[in-house]
Design a protein around this nucleic acid. Structure first.
Lengths: 340, 340
DNA sequence: CTGAAAGCGCTAACAC
DNA sequence: GTGTTAGCGCTTTCAG
């Protein structure tokens, strides 16, 4: 606990003294290298145990040139999107005994540069750059001395490797599902038109519609914001249009929840009269919605996992790809599209 | 970027060679120590710049015995509650040039023990233990060789220092506000009875009521779950009770949002007929609710900040407290209690 | 099978 | 002012 006097950590030399051997022998015993008499090994391990010896990884690193540490540089504050990435990465790296050094630059390029220097000074074996938006971001540099992988954010430099979710495929899958449940008058309620995520989702949705030979209800997507408020407004516009829409693809779960509320509060039955699909599989939205939302899961943890795996591969000296590698999104079915 | 051959990092020796001086001189020039001719210093710095020299922090640490690294041991997966803690801690530590080593044990004691060993092997200067629940948790041990502070979780060992939000005070403040806006028939809609957070919040709320000389509507709290669903159910029970409740303290924003929905959908006007206060100030709930929720902010970032500050102090050799240090929660006013 | 010595990259103390 | 030396804790030859 915090009040005991800080002890100087135990060293190999001390263990060696107790065990009556040399430091080199202690090293061999601890790491199972070399040829040691079983009895000696036992004696060393006992001494180590007794003293509570924990080998100093700094010293090891100095020798080996590897720190078994990966830097996480997150541009935006750590939020709902970056957590699963972290978890996925931790998962992939933890197996390889790597530790995570976390740096949050808050979108400030100066801070980011500062953190980058620190990570390099700490001799991390590699770096994962992540953040909230899937919009492009500048590369952290082309002559970083260690491998770098971008996760959830895309580097502007095509020589970098970025692991992203596939917005187009996700939206396509969502609309495919609406079609499969028999809907034909399908509307698209999107986010802000300037976001690239919006565009990719709209494209994917329209591709699915045209593949099925139907056209977008109302002649095109409704653009708005990433909010429930906008979803409710959109629902009312859909009702007022008298188009008898029977399916809605929403570009986020927040929008979808708003649409569901808007419909229900105006007497439309979801899913009987209208089916709704969202995007994100954000539990507090999707599961708490009335009815619970069918939605697209971006598989963020998988993105983190893939990013970390690619990074490990690069650290091990293998060539890794460049450009964008997509992780498929998947459909999660809940009541908002159920047919009986 | 990831495809360039990994270069061996530049060392002081190489800089020294280029600058035509000795390694010791390079060290002095880089750290501004000792007496150096201005011209020499310039020359060294230029050489360092030219080679892209970044001093190896491992080597420095080996010498100084300090790593300028703090371990974060989070018991539960990193979530909504732990993020602000991290941010707050990063904030306090970043100023002191400390880096964060993140370990997520997922509540698995074996994993936690494993991570603890790794952190100690990496010779972190201190450890912050955090997690999701404010329920007690076992101490990570009484003879850890570095300072430890618990944030948001409480150690069972009273010798440890735990930084917690003050549930009682928060609830007290919430009910005080309901009273201040003229409500007198105030109900309490709580979470699961077995959670200590529930108990503290109920206690605080009832203390505020009895201080004002009024009694809890319905004779006591309604216990349920941390969900909107439960909030809606509770609202209906309140309406059916015919008690004409005019204020509700909800133990979470999710519950509060459910209560608000339940009232609105049954023709009760919030805040005109009933005022509602939640707890958490969780934006997606509090701001998206209809009406937006007045709520108690637990000031989680502040908790992280305080924890990190105490840890730094301990690392610097100062004595720090033991037991529990509370961080006050604060009232955030929104429409759900507004009076005109 | 085990010990002695050198060295990873850096800095602090002491020479010159 | 600047160079030299020793050593942080560990591993790895290479002798013995």
């Amino acid at each position: 606990m915090s009040l005991s006097p800080r002890r100087r950590p135990v060293t190999v030399a001390e263990v060696a003294a107790i065990a009556g051997v040399s430091p080199g022998t202690v090293s061999k015993a601890m790491n199972g290298r070399g040829q040691l008499k079983e009895e000696t090994r036992k004696r060393v391990l006992a001494a180590a145990e007794q003293l509570g010896f924990t080998p100093n990884l700094m010293a090891k690193s100095l020798l080996s040139g590897r720190t078994y540490t990966v830097g996480i540089l997150t541009t935006d504050s750590i939020g709902r999107f970056t957590i699963p990435i972290l978890t996925g990465a931790e998962d992939a790296l933890g197996a390889g005994q790597m530790s995570l050094l976390l740096c949050e630059s808050r979108g400030d390029p100066i801070r980011e540069q500062h953190y980058l220097r620190i990570l390099l000074a700490r001799r991390v074996d590699g770096i994962i750059v992540t953040g909230r938006s899937s919009d492009m971001r500048p590369s952290i540099g082309r002559d970083i001395p260690v491998p770098v992988v971008y996760a959830l954010v895309q580097s502007e430099d095509p020589n970098d490797l970025s692991i992203l979710h596939d917005d187009g495929q996700g939206a396509f899958t969502a609309v495919e599902h609406l079609l499969a449940t028999g809907r034909r008058k399908i509307a698209i309620v999107a986010g802000p038109i300037r976001h690239s995520a919006t565009q990719h989702r709209v494209d994917g949705a329209e591709r699915a519609l045209s593949t099925a030979g139907v056209s977008t209800a109302l002649g095109g997507p409704l653009y708005g914001e990433w909010s429930e408020q906008w979803g409710r407004e959109a629902a009312i516009r859909l009702i007022k249009s008298d188009m008898e829409v029977d399916g809605v693809f929403c570009a986020s779960d927040q929008i979808a929840r708003g649409v569901a509320d808007g419909f229900r509060e105006n007497g439309l039955d979801v899913p009987r009269q209208v089916g709704i699909v969202g995007v994100d599989n954000w539990d507090v939205m999707a599961a708490a919605s009335r009815p619970p939302l069918t939605t697209i899961d971006l598989n963020l943890a998988e993105i983190g996992h893939v990013a970390a795996t690619r990074l490990l591969s690069a650290i091990d000296g293998h060539l890794i790809g460049r450009g964008v590698e997509y992780v498929a999104s998947s459909l999660v079915k809940r009541r908002s599209t159920e047919i009986d």
